[in-house]
Amino acid sequence: MLSPTRTWAVLVKEFVQLTRDRLTYAMILVLPIVQLLLFGYAINDDPRRLPTAVLAQDHGAFSRSILSALSTSGYFDIRLEARSQAELDRALERGDVQFAVVIPGDFTRRVVRGERAQILVEADASDPSATSGAVAALSNLPAQALARDLTGPLSARQPGQAPFEVVVHRRYNPEAVTAYNIVPGLLGVILSMTLVMMTSLGMARERERGTMEGLLATPARPLEVMAGKLAPYVLVGLIQAGVILVLARVLFGVPMQGGWAAFGLGLTLFIVGSLALGFLISTVARTQLQAMQMSFFYVLPSILLSGFMFPFRGMPEWAQALGTAIPVTHFLRVVRGSLLKGAGLEAAAPSLLELSIFVVVVSTLAMLRYRTTLD
């Protein structure tokens, strides 16, 4: 028969034990708050103020009106006035801008003569959800941008005829296939989940089983232990990456444009950094449960703030700052830049530098923590 007294005693004991495990207690309280803040404030499917580059070969009043209309639309933030098409292409390839606007030199003359005037808007459509709202807003640009300029004789044109045409060129993903953006991004998420968790859980398991004491009794130095522990997982990460790439090409038709040097270097840095992070977590966690909780606390922001599921530029500045500190963000830029754009080492250099810093910092902290454990 169920005894309320004994049940209550066990219940009180569990609550006391829970409060003693500070890490688990903190996870229970902090994790829902973090999820609420991220989903409530940081996630936005309709990004605004997207960085835009302009190549204005016509400097007349009509051109200035168009640029003003783009800025006031709320979707475009003109940050670069390019001097050549090559500079525009480089900015798009590096991911510095989301849009590139080209106003040809004969634009004003064609508008005045009533000829077929055009402007070109090139969009980095590697992430279709990041550009769809802005591209849709461009449909209203011809009717509104020059409304105040075309007065008097200039306003005499056929009813319904727009003064100019906006030609939109979706680069890197012209058909707006979502899988082209999501599937390469899965590479970073899957590697984070498996490598960080496998390493942290493996080390914590050794500590729980008592085999860590035997390792600590050996003359092996922290760097030697770390290298020996992580080397097999590097091979695991490379195999996982190869499998994902093959399936991405065969099942989803993801284009492979090249940039393999940048991709290979970024992949190596990310694998080593993820394993070092797992090693660092294992030096802090006392149990496998704590190791899993800490790993999940890293994986969740990596999914939400890296640009994997939601447009990175749609997040507020504070969320973008947090996302920039996450290595998955930079790895996704390398992967998508290499596969979809064919970006080389020069274009991927900023992200590769961030990944290198991450590897050095996390590896150093992991060795220092392990040395403390040895002492």
Rank of each mutant, 00 (worst) to 15 (best):
17 Q>K: 11
88 L>F: 03
240 Q>T: 08
272 V>A: 15
296 F>S: 10
243 V>R: 11
337 G>W: 00
178 T>C: 13
235 L>T: 06
8 W>R: 08
230 L>S: 09
93 E>I: 03
197 M>Q: 12
190 I>K: 10
256 M>K: 06
91 A>L: 05
312 F>D: 08
36 L>H: 01
193 M>S: 13
93 E>M: 12
351 S>F: 11
271 I>E: 01
16 V>E: 11
245 L>A: 12
284 V>I: 15
223 L>D: 12
98 Q>G: 06
8 W>M: 11
292 M>N: 14
69 A>N: 06
133 G>I: 00
231 A>N: 06
57 Q>D: 15
78 I>Y: 02
228 G>Q: 04
354 E>R: 15
157 R>L: 07
207 R>P: 04
69 A>L: 05
361 V>W: 02
33 I>C: 11
86 A>I: 01
165 E>A: 14
336 R>M: 08
348 A>D: 10
354 E>L: 15
47 P>M: 02
145 A>T: 04
263 F>D: 10
31 L>A: 15
44 N>K: 15
105 G>C: 06
348 A>M: 10
351 S>P: 11
303 I>D: 09
109 R>D: 13
123 A>F: 00
185 G>P: 02
72 T>E: 14
263 F>G: 11
351 S>Y: 14
289 L>W: 03
8 W>T: 10
183 V>K: 10
169 H>C: 14
277 L>D: 05
245 L>T: 09
338 S>F: 01
173 N>F: 01
333 R>W: 08
172 Y>R: 10
117 A>L: 03
268 T>W: 15
18 L>E: 03
132 S>N: 13
337 G>I: 01
54 V>S: 06
179 A>H: 02
334 V>Y: 00
86 A>V: 03
114 G>E: 01
203 M>V: 09
364 T>D: 04
201 L>I: 07
198 M>E: 09
65 S>L: 10
216 L>C: 04
30 V>Y: 13
34 V>K: 11
218 T>F: 00
286 R>G: 11
14 E>P: 05
249 R>E: 15
367 M>N: 14
88 L>T: 01
118 Q>N: 10
321 A>Q: 08
312 F>L: 14
162 A>S: 09
73 S>E: 03
249 R>Y: 14
14 E>C: 09
101 V>R: 04
33 I>F: 14
237 G>Y: 01
150 L>V: 07
201 L>H: 01
137 A>T: 00
216 L>Q: 08
85 Q>H: 14
160 G>R: 06
68 S>Q: 15
88 L>W: 01
20 R>M: 11
111 V>E: 07
341 K>F: 05
373 T>C: 12
138 L>E: 00
356 S>I: 02
275 L>E: 00
213 E>I: 05
81 E>M: 15
115 E>H: 07
177 V>A: 15
228 G>P: 02
370 Y>Q: 09
139 S>P: 10
144 Q>M: 09
21 D>Y: 04
10 V>M: 11
324 T>C: 12
163 P>V: 03
20 R>G: 10
60 G>M: 06
282 S>T: 00
182 I>Y: 02
296 F>L: 15
192 S>Y: 07
205 R>Y: 07
231 A>F: 05
339 L>S: 02
110 R>W: 04
184 P>Y: 03
19 T>P: 07
75 Y>M: 06
348 A>Q: 09
269 L>T: 01
374 L>W: 02
312 F>E: 09
81 E>R: 15
165 E>C: 12
348 A>T: 08
269 L>F: 05
317 E>S: 13
